[in-house]
Design a protein around this nucleic acid. Structure first.
Lengths: 349, 349
DNA sequence: CTGTTAGCGCCTTCAG
DNA sequence: CTGAAGGCGCTAACAG
């Protein structure tokens, strides 16, 4: 069994040059749409390119130009609704410019983040898009020092200034909380993620602001911080409802937590026992199944991805002032009719 | 505003060589763990590498070796649970070997698939993992002809033989349908995807087999093919239930369709009006919210990704016979208790 | 408008 | 065990 042969060497620029009776420089110029080539030769070259089935070797090109037309993405998990939506929209935005995505997971670990950045550095990606795993980012410094554009998405880190594309988490949480208050609820619980994560922290702030401005107290017994995962939502909900005098209304920090909390209610038969009401961050395809949700905060993930991609491209092009740029996108508050529920907006209703 | 400066040129093998007082060849040998270097020099070289903060330029390396340690992935959509789970597991498997993932979306289009393959070819990826957008794959031929390993995942195409990693779709559907039959249902509807997609087709076959072996008729009026998306499930469910004499039990082809169908039931108040029961492919974090689901077929997506990655690596290494290899993984039938519902297995219960 | 000439950073025979 | 030298495929001055 013959081992490890590489892909067929392929046609090079030289063979095209020979076939077209020109120099490699000319072929290169045609390939790069350099205007100073006579239309005739250009045409002839293009014919040879087609006939020989020439495909440019981007690796060789990158070695020379120091540009790979590749953007690296590091996320705490690839298997998350947020990341996949983001990747899809970045891909759409970037593919038009011939850029591609090199993705990997940091597995929610700082040390893996470092390793991944090393990988990116060695591969000469043109820019890195990072969804931080934690609140700390000092270990990004060596990478950033290399001069490669670096943009944070979704979450901020507290010890580093860098480009960032985020949503208005505090505003979204405030809106949702206000809506519950306007609905007449005076006591509202909070189901949250760790305050170590900027999104969770900001959403908590928005929640407390809305409570304060309405003169309502935040009851410590009914504020729970956990992880941002399904299990945490389930547990937090269980704990709070186990306490006497639990509120009827809750603000929930994200979709996964929301799924967990909803599942607890369904498991334990609260659907019939009480009139629990949620306001929650995130709108997902399965959101119509979240029965206790009256208000949800929809993030413009598509735009988040597009803006991120754009900012990365601008940095690569050097067409933007060097000061770190922080982009905050607005959220949209959505009312879910109690009954009947409707399918998400791109469907019917 | 100074435009388009690249990342800082970085330390090269030459500078390391000079600092260590050896030749570049020796440094290269040390970097590649070539045994024929004296331990002393090796140590000295490694010190210099550390002190100078040398990072290998993989692009230059790739130009020479014709290997990029990168695997390209093309999927119809990046924003799908299936793709993301797959990517996560491939990443986990590959990162240990220094491989990375270059991903892009074909947007469910054959022509985009072609473009993406061109991109991959130019970038000299070591292998391509393809989730086909349609049932056709003749346009993969030119790429495969280059000699780059090519493995299909999840779906087969009807006009091309190639490596493939799949699940036993027919078997899973058969099991689920049998379970409904064993529960006493004699009339079972089918909510499906287009038969143009191999997964949907195979699942339909499994369904019909189970019905046939039980001597039950497949009623055409209660078989619906659509896309594999949420909206399609909603519509199909609506149509079927609008017909007089609709069955109580349904087999559903995948998670998205399942979400759509479930949502229809909730929207229209069927939750109270009837005892609709589902058996469905796919198990997801939000599955506990799918209230009508009694049986679900869990796909081993993690293993699918791991096996795919392994096969790709084996092909790259040339350590496996050249005949196309088709791997079929078994599915697991899961019973969902009607009440109370439980959180998915990695949670509690 | 076009060709010549150097490399980009690394690996890899081939000599020593 | 180690060094010298050539080249992977392409681009970018610099001449003409």
């Amino acid at each position: 069994m013959m081992g490890g042969e590489k892909a067929a060497p392929g046609v090079t620029i030289r063979e095209v040059a020979k076939a077209a009776g020109v120099s490699t420089a000319t072929v290169s110029r045609v390939l790069n749409a350099d205007p100073r080539v006579s239309p005739d030769t250009a045409r002839r070259v293009r014919e040879c390119v087609a006939e020989l089935g020439y495909k440019m070797n981007q690796v060789a090109r990158s070695l020379k130009t120091r540009a790979t037309r590749t953007i690296g993405v590091v996320a705490p998990r690839l298997a998350s609704d947020f990341f996949m939506l983001l990747a899809e929209s970045m891909d759409r935005e970037l593919s038009a410019y011939g850029y591609g995505l090199f993705v990997c997971s940091s597995r929610e670990s700082v040390s893996e983040e470092e390793q991944r950045l090393q990988l990116m550095a060695e591969r000469l990606v043109d820019a890195v898009v990072m969804i931080p795993a934690t609140d700390r980012g000092t270990h990004y410094r060596p990478f950033i020092g290399r001069g490669t554009p670096f943009v944070l998405v979704d979450r901020l880190v507290s010890d580093l200034e860098a480009d960032a594309v985020l949503v208005d988490n505090a505003g979204g949480a405030r809106d949702a909380t206000r809506a519950l208050i306007a609905d007449g609820y005076r006591r509202i619980g909070f189901l949250g993620g760790s305050l170590e994560v900027s999104t969770a922290r900001e959403r908590y702030e928005g929640f407390t602001e809305a409570m304060a401005e309405a003169g309502l107290a935040v009851e410590e017994d009914f504020v729970r911080f956990g992880s941002l995962h399904v299990e945490s939502g389930y547990l937090s909900m269980a704990e709070m409802l186990a306490r006497p005098g639990a509120p009827e209304a809750y603000f929930i920090v994200n979709a996964d937590t929301h799924v967990g909390a909803t599942n607890y209610l369904m498991t334990e038969g609260w659907a019939s026992r009480g009139r629990i009401v949620f306001a929650s961050f995130d709108e997902m395809p399965y959101s119509p199944l979240l029965q206790f949700c009256r208000w949800s905060v929809s993030q413009p993930i598509d735009e988040l991805g597009a803006r991120t991609a754009r900012l990365a491209l601008d940095r690569i092009g050097g067409t933007v002032p060097p000061e770190p740029e922080i982009i905050r996108l607005g959220t949209k508050l959505i009312r879910h009719d109690v009954r009947p529920r409707t399918l998400r907006s791109d469907g019917f209703d």
